[in-house]
Amino acid sequence: MSAKQLNCDVVIIGGGATGVGVLRDAAMRGLKAILVERVDLAQGTTGRYHGLLHSGGRYVVSDPESATECAEENAILKRIHPDAVEATGGLFVSVAGDDDEFPDRFIKGAEATGVPAAEITIAEARKREPRLTPKLARAFEVQDGTVDGWRMVWGAVESAREYGAECLTYHRVTDIDVKDGAVRGVMCHADKTGEDVYIECRAVVNAAGPWGGHIAAMAGEHDVQVVPGRGIMVAMNHRLVNSVVNRCVYPADGDIIVPVHTVSIIGTTDVRDDDPDHLVIE
């Protein structure tokens, strides 16, 4: 059976936040764009994270460049996806026994990276979040928020479609056609219909997240090393806090509480894994 034929300027592989953002951007620039996703939208990292819209504060010491990017992205997402964002605000707090020097490094790092942050009194912090420990030493307010990943992704796709883009879910990439070092097309299998689909294109954007190395290898690029990581988060059945609360320490495991809709999510851990399709729940 011959494959169904489609044609476009660019194929985007991966239906998470990155992929749909690229789809929308490409369509708005006048390119004919098609996104392919092997299952449904936001089924990978985008649908499995703690929902935090970073202010950049977490990285002002450990990764200044990422801190600046987070602050810039925070403002963009609040502008273009306001229906998917809750501007909760956030706190970075240190407690008795923490590194006494880190809060000073934090506020200097925030200033250097352009991440809005300001110190507030302990009384103000505990008034804002009464469940905070009485052992608070210092507190800083930042512009953290929370994101509904599904609402954001579907909103971006609906906007992209208005500009002429296509989004093909349950289309699994089986091969990438390359000749003389240039991509010519993408072969997919539509798992719901059983048909093969060949999309002729001039470029491919690999937005497959943890599966990015596998997709790159299909195009003959074997040096794209992606290290999958798995994490554990604990979802409480109510909101412990109304703003994001971060430990004001060098980033570590389990140092964030994120209020999302009617719950709070405590996270996260980060452990290297070999296969994002087969994550062991210990």
Rank of each mutant, 00 (worst) to 15 (best):
D9V: 08
V11H: 13
I12W: 07
G19V: 11
V22S: 06
L23T: 00
D25M: 06
A26I: 02
L31Y: 15
K32P: 01
I34F: 11
I34S: 12
V36I: 10
L41E: 05
L41C: 03
A42T: 02
A42F: 05
T46L: 07
R48D: 00
L53N: 05
L53C: 02
G57T: 08
G57F: 07
R58N: 07
V60H: 01
S62M: 06
D63K: 14
D63T: 07
P64N: 02
C70V: 10
I76Q: 13
L77E: 00
H81T: 05
A84V: 00
A87S: 13
G90R: 03
L91K: 13
V93K: 12
V93M: 05
V93D: 07
S94I: 03
S94R: 08
D99P: 15
P103D: 00
F106I: 10
F106A: 05
A112W: 06
A112K: 11
A118Y: 14
E119H: 04
E129R: 07
T133E: 11
L136F: 11
A137E: 14
F140R: 11
F140H: 08
V142C: 06
V142E: 07
W150R: 15
M152S: 05
V153A: 00
G164N: 07
L168G: 13
Y170A: 04
V178N: 15
V178I: 12
T193E: 10
T193N: 11
T193R: 12
Y198G: 12
I199M: 03
R202K: 15
A208H: 11
W211D: 08
W211M: 02
G212Y: 07
G213E: 01
M218V: 01
G220H: 07
D223A: 09
D223N: 13
V227Y: 14
I232C: 13
L240T: 05
V244F: 05
R247M: 11
G254E: 10
D255N: 14
P259E: 10
I265D: 09
T268W: 07
V271W: 07
D277A: 05
D277K: 11
V280C: 07
